[in-house]
Design a protein around this nucleic acid. Sequence first.
DNA 1: AAGTCGGGGAG
DNA 2: CTCCCAGACTT
Length: 347
Amino acid sequence: MNSAEIARATEAWFLEHQRDLPWRRTVTEGRRDPYTSLVSEFMLQQTQVSRVLEKFGPFIQRFPDVRTLAGASEDDVLAHWSGLGYYSRARRLHSAARAIVERHDGVVPSDVQSLRALPGVGRYTAGAIASMVFRQREAVVDGNVQRVLVRLHAKELRLGVPETDRWAWKIAQGLVEACGQPGVLNEGLIELGATVCTPKGPKCTDCPVSAWCAAKRDGLQEELPRPKPRAKRREVWHGVAIVVEGDRVLLERRPETGLWAGLWAPPAVEREDHPPTPEEVSAVVGGTTSSGPEGFTHETTHRIVRFNLYRVEGGQAGDRGWFSLRQALALGISKAHARIVRLALEA
DNA sequence: AAGTCGGGGAG
DNA sequence: CTCCCAGACTT
């Protein structure tokens, strides 16, 4: 297979057909802004472009440079990440900004080793910044690139297994060695996977490398790559104590590990396999329980969270705080808990 | 090698 | 409903 031809065709296609995305518009002095590129790469980890578009602008406006982000509070950072999910990314980005200030005098490093040493920066993100911003000859492999390469070679591989990962990195490095501009090739492969070589219904007629695609040749483009074994989800019940005083609701910070780590939420009792009793819920804040708004189910990748809501009278604040809806939304708060706060304060 | 971590859009 | 997304990190 001709790596040079495939790489060049991908680069040419990308330069012609790339989407207009905000983090691609930060070019000054012939180079994309390293900091905003870093922010976009963190946000894009396991997250579709359409989701990131809603959060990227406000985040950059609030934290326009490394030092501003490094100097901000964690609550402020998490608040601007709220609704985007995978909140550990926000904490790691915050830590990375502080590390850049301390280790690199506030300048985003350009070599993969230094990038890789930053919190939250793995092999993909380091390669992305090094190649797309600093124009170094480094490869990247994400879910898009894996799918494109598996199809191109019609390899019988499943996504999400180490063998596929090792194989894809090797192939990607071969392409990078043969390409013109590594950053353009890399972003082209990713863009190809996102817009043309999609998981379902790939648009092979629009593909710049279909002439070399073994999957298309063999009619396997819909079959490859084989799907990843499905994550088994566990059920968990949250009995939530809704304590209201005037137009404010009682919130506490969640534990530093686990689901929604470090975010704010109403006091709650969590149980595996069965719902907590009203008595257990009221005991959390030491008040008396009455029925609350109707509960609901919130699903994540690995859990099905069933919320039971109780109003509790006379609850104590303790190591907690009272927040209006506006104030609550200015904290890091999950989608599910934002919904609970709204239910608590309406009517 | 497997598990964990969100949330939403597409099919 | 199921699947997947510009992954990283822990165990």
